[in-house]
Write a protein that binds this DNA or RNA. Structure first.
Lengths: 204, 204
DNA sequence: ACGGTGATGTCACGAACTGACATCACGGCT
DNA sequence: AGCCGTGATGTCAGTTCGTGACATCACCGT
């Protein structure tokens, strides 16, 4: 028979989630998590680089974004981003309850918010890289990626706090539409319509 | 005569900067900083909430942004933001050398990058609040603030890595112009086609 | 049966913070 | 002048995070 109960990592994750929810992140020690998962503290650190990382297992998202960006039809950068984010939406929508719970924990703790921002920043890098692969110049790619994730933040926030009114995908679309209205409105919009496809426009 | 040398905080700040630059953030202990500043470790923590915070004394920036946003002429949101960021630019330009040095330290350490993102997020809140005060609805304000800071990130990055080609203010203006091109341009199809995303069907 | 491997345990430790209490120049008040 | 409150600092003890080094031992392939 096996020397240890299987899936130590899973048990740790579950224990951590429960405790963070129950007593709050700060009041939870790694020792407690380990004890509840019936492993040692050391084992916790073998599975997660730190106490926060348990909540941020989401590399799936980066993969979806990168893939969707790479395979999207030739479109203006913002359309590509809408496409990619829309593809990614189900990752959240499929486990809305868990996501909300997780978000509540994060909302209650500044350290966790920092980590979340870091994760989002890494998504920006991923997106920007994927856009560069599509031929965008580096500044445009960086800017488009930043704006995309910025819009996602707002859309996600609205989705979390606006239970079931709309899907996340709808919020994303609405938010990016709002972005267009925000940035376009006063100016005449058609000036740059020289028929070119995705923007090779340079940042003058 | 006085019991202690004056300006403990200033000495701590100086000592920390030097050590972070010299041996790196990780390799520097608070004990070392305190020793060099000729105070105790405890005193360090009385002046700075943690080891990172020494590098993020920048509440001046938030004040400038909030004030400039509040007093800007009535304009489209994005114009207000351009105005505010432009007002804030001198905060950096006036001490470009120090800013570059600081940025190098931050670039070398993920923990510091996390903190920086947190500070920027707090600027987003400040900006959004100021925009709401101007009468924008909460979602538009949040979105405009996110986009403004996103553009600022890109502009700042270009400024740091593009020594003296342009001023930060120029970069900001260029970047926000690029934002307009990114979001507005040439998407004549979008006006009538609010429906399906092209290419959606064959993206796994 | 044998030896290598990988997941876990054990131990020891440094370094980041924190709470509680002590000290004592300074500045104001009487 | 003398007393007193205050604020900045020191001292100390303790908790928790996170890591390196080494030990254990079921499992798996040969």
């Amino acid at each position: 028979m096996s020397r240890w109960k299987p899936d130590a990592r899973g048990r740790l994750e579950k224990a951590a989630l429960e405790l963070y929810n129950d007593k709050g992140f700060d009041a939870t020690t790694v020792a407690e998590i380990a004890a509840r998962a019936e492993v040692t503290e050391r084992t916790f650190y073998r599975h997660f680089v730190d106490k926060r990382e348990v909540l941020f297992q989401t590399n799936a998202l980066a993969d979806v974004l990168a893939h969707a960006t790479a395979t999207a039809a030739p479109l203006a950068p913002l359309e590509v981003i809408i496409h990619a984010l829309t593809e990614a939406a189900p990752v959240f929508e499929e486990r809305a309850e868990l996501v909300r719970q997780r978000q509540a924990v994060i909302a209650a703790n500044p350290e966790l918010q920092e980590r979340e921002l870091a994760k989002l920043a890494s998504l920006v890098s991923t997106l920007a890289h994927a856009l560069r692969e599509r031929g965008l110049d580096s500044t445009t790619a960086a800017l488009a990626a930043e704006i995309g994730i910025a819009a996602f933040k707002v859309a996600f926030d609205r989705w979390i706090n606006d239970p079931d009114q709309h899907t996340l995908a709808q919020h994303i679309r609405e938010t990016l539409d709002a972005t267009r209205h925000l940035t376009a409105p006063a100016e005449h919009a058609a000036a740059t319509d020289d028929g070119s496809l995705p923007g090779q426009e340079n940042v003058a």
